[in-house]
Simulated scan of single mutants.
Amino acid sequence: MVVREAVTNAEKGALLFEAFFPNKPVESAVPENPAYPPPRWAHSDITDAQIHRALKKMKPYKATSRGTPPNSVMIYNGDLLVPHLAPLFRATSTLHHYPAAWAVKDVDSFW
């Protein structure tokens, strides 16, 4: 291992870049025909019961984020909401699509 001394910020940046982003290897370490083990379980869509269990674990007087109703709304109205939410959640899996608006962290931009 060669020890180099970096004095300027540019030299320090270059050393850090080399340390965190080394050159790609000449040859791949992945074998030509890799043999993967079979999946341990088959994928299954989320069930209504799983959603009910998740609702029961929520803290009632907290909100999922600023500007949203408290979790108690979901908890105490789960019987009414789950029949509508479950098909939406299952559709994300079936269609392989996760709406971008669901990933928004800033609630004000969502509404």
Rank of each mutant, 00 (worst) to 15 (best):
M1F: 00
M1D: 07
M1L: 07
V2Q: 11
V3K: 06
R4T: 11
E5P: 00
E5M: 08
E5C: 07
V7M: 02
T8P: 03
T8Q: 05
A10C: 02
A10G: 03
A10W: 00
A10S: 08
E11T: 04
E11L: 05
G13W: 00
G13A: 14
A14Q: 15
A14W: 07
A14I: 03
L15F: 14
F17N: 13
F17S: 11
A19H: 09
F20I: 05
N23T: 13
K24G: 05
K24H: 08
P25H: 08
S28E: 05
S28N: 10
V30L: 11
V30H: 00
V30E: 07
V30N: 03
P31N: 04
E32G: 01
N33R: 09
N33G: 03
N33W: 06
N33Y: 07
P34A: 01
A35C: 08
A35Q: 14
A35I: 14
Y36L: 14
Y36M: 07
P37T: 03
P38Y: 04
W41I: 00
A42N: 14
A42S: 15
H43Y: 12
S44F: 01
D45W: 03
I46P: 01
I46M: 10
T47H: 09
A49C: 01
Q50L: 01
H52T: 00
A54Q: 01
A54D: 01
L55M: 15
L55A: 15
K56L: 12
M58A: 13
K59V: 01
Y61I: 00
Y61N: 15
K62D: 13
A63N: 11
A63F: 06
T64F: 14
T64R: 01
T64V: 10
T64K: 02
G67Y: 06
T68H: 04
P69E: 02
P69R: 11
N71Q: 02
S72R: 14
S72H: 08
S72G: 02
V73M: 12
M74Q: 06
I75Q: 12
N77V: 04
N77H: 15
N77M: 07
G78P: 10
G78D: 12
G78L: 09
L80I: 11
L81N: 07
L81R: 06
L81K: 05
V82F: 03
P83Q: 09
A86Q: 13
A86D: 04
P87K: 03
F89Q: 00
A91S: 09
A91W: 14
A91L: 10
T92V: 05
T92G: 01
T92R: 02
T92H: 00
S93A: 15
T94Q: 10
L95K: 13
L95V: 06
L95N: 11
L95Q: 12
H97T: 08
P99F: 08
P99G: 08
P99A: 06
A100H: 10
A101W: 13
W102H: 08
A103G: 13
A103T: 15
V104Y: 12
K105W: 04
K105D: 11
D106F: 03
V107K: 03
D108S: 12
D108G: 03
S109E: 10
S109F: 08
S109W: 04
